[in-house]
């Protein structure tokens, strides 16, 4: 959006969110949720460092924002009922 120094704001200030960063490309392993095992405790949502577990409304099952999920695997490691597995991304 900026072309030259002339377009710059007088003071360096941010203008957009990091949502534009596709950190999902960092991922080696992808979390996959088995909804039959999920008991909707939302542990995965609470601990996700990348705000990449989506729960729209109370009662909903969680889903994963694969654009941003870095594949750390915390959600799978800490899932009480073991509903999340980490699967190798294709090369």
């Amino acid at each position: 959006m900026y072309e030259t120094y002339r377009d710059l704001p007088p003071i360096q200030i941010t203008t957009e969110s990091t949502k534009g960063n596709q950190t999902g490309t960092w991922r080696t392993f992808r979390p996959v949720i088995d909804l039959d095992k999920c008991d909707r405790c939302y542990t995965c949502w609470i601990f996700c460092p990348d705000v990449s577990i989506i729960v729209e409304e109370e009662g909903d099952y969680p889903s994963i924002d694969l654009i941003h999920c870095k594949g750390c695997g915390i959600c799978a490691n800490d899932c009480g009922p073991g509903a999340i597995t980490m699967e190798r991304e294709p090369l």
Partner: peptide, 22 residues
């Protein structure tokens, strides 16, 4: 809410310094 003074990469640092010089 904005962030002030955060990380600038080499692709824009020179332009910010040039603004100060100008």
């Amino acid at each position: 809410p904005r962030r002030f003074g955060g990380l600038i990469m080499p692709d824009w640092w020179t332009e910010f310094r040039y603004r100060i010089a100008l």
